[in-house]
Nucleic acid binder design. Structure first.
Lengths: 206, 206
DNA sequence: CTTTGTGAATTCGTTCACAGCA
DNA sequence: TGCTGTGAACGAATTCACAAAG
């Protein structure tokens, strides 16, 4: 498959969320201009993004909300749902878990790991915390491709190495450490320091 | 001042962090290739970013770490330090506060707000939680330009409106809501759902 | 020689302009 | 007429290629 730009994927995900909201309010179809206005992009941008997934609208009615949502879903989502692992069950890790647990319908499983033996065996919302060293013993890791890292900086690289050995191909990195990973592993930086300083900079400009 | 691209600002912030780390390990100078390799960009990229802030290196020794760090700092940072407000002191808000409290040296003040009257008056690490309705009564808001929003989605827009009235010009939005703000207010989306789905998508491609 | 600084070239992403269709 | 779909034009961001300097 041809490589799809990250920005397009991001926008498609945003479109889907909007479509889902609109469907909830009983809407059945919309034009690119409407979707664009809600999402904050141009109508042409929306149309060319939808070209990427090959979805066709009609000049008369625009796009069918239900249909389009499903199309984006089948393009973006894993067919059988996604399994994720959260490593580092401090206050941030716990927030992430609760958020995913309640808000992410397409997650088929959430595994919890930590490096601190004190936490091992205890549970969050009925889900057990495993030691990261036992990662190979956890059955569900087989179908887990994505990990969220919320450990202290000093453990970040070690934990990453273990995750990659266990087959992880995508990482949300909440630590300020720049992780070393092979080319086929996708890392998204989630640390707040860079955005915080960026926002502060632009806030001062205006 | 000419408008600086967001990406350049982000990279400068990353460079500074790296320089800070290297200085800690006793390094005194480096070449663009070294900085590029650590940061994960090309050497040309590094050099042209540094051109933006007008910093000059020498072919013989490259860039002086101490000097360059200071130069980036005086370009990026507010001269008198930055005041921020965190709105929504749930588990995520608390994590953010602790992180900022310990890890952000350039923050001159951190204010805490919530919409839930039950929390009002209680303290986190010795810092009092105010009700968002009392925002105008809080003296330090005068020097606060940046806010972190970690409230439930249903309160997000209301809280935003109040913050903007109180003079906030930059927002880190941890909610999944797309906030409506005036043109001179800078919003950075911090919700994890979009990045999580994005990472899952690319993890599946590889 | 190696490295910086930088105009030119290239690549990537967005928008324009218009053909095609209800 | 409205709108969608899409090649062409444009603009932004990155990389190339090379002059200048120790």
């Amino acid at each position: 498959m041809r490589k799809i730009p990250e920005k397009t994927i991001q926008r498609l995900i945003i479109y889907r969320k909007i479509l889902n909201d609109l469907r909830y309010y009983g809407e059945t179809s919309l034009f690119s201009s409407k979707l664009a206005q809600i999402a904050g992009y141009s109508p042409v941008q929306v149309r060319s993004d939808l070209m990427v997934i090959g979805y066709q609208g009609t000049p008369a009615r625009g796009y069918d909300i239900d249909d389009l949502e499903t199309s984006i879903g089948s393009f973006i989502d894993a067919p059988k749902g996604e399994g994720i692992a959260i490593v580092g069950i401090g206050s941030l890790g716990k927030s992430m878990f609760e958020y995913c647990y309640w808000k992410c319908p397409n997650l088929s499983s959430i595994l919890l790991f930590d490096v601190d033996s004190v936490l091992i065996g205890s549970k969050v919302e009925g889900t057990e915390i495993h030691h990261i060293n036992d990662i190979d013993k956890v059955q569900e890791m087989e179908k887990t491709r994505v990990a969220i890292i919320t450990v202290p900086p000093e453990n970040a690289q070690d934990v990453t190495d273990m995750l990659i050995l266990a087959g992880i191909k995508g990482i949300l990195n909440y630590t300020p450490v720049r992780l070393k990973v092979p080319d086929d592993v996708f890392v998204e930086e989630m640390d707040m320091i860079v955005p915080l300083e960026k926002v502060a900079f632009y806030a001062r400009q205006s």
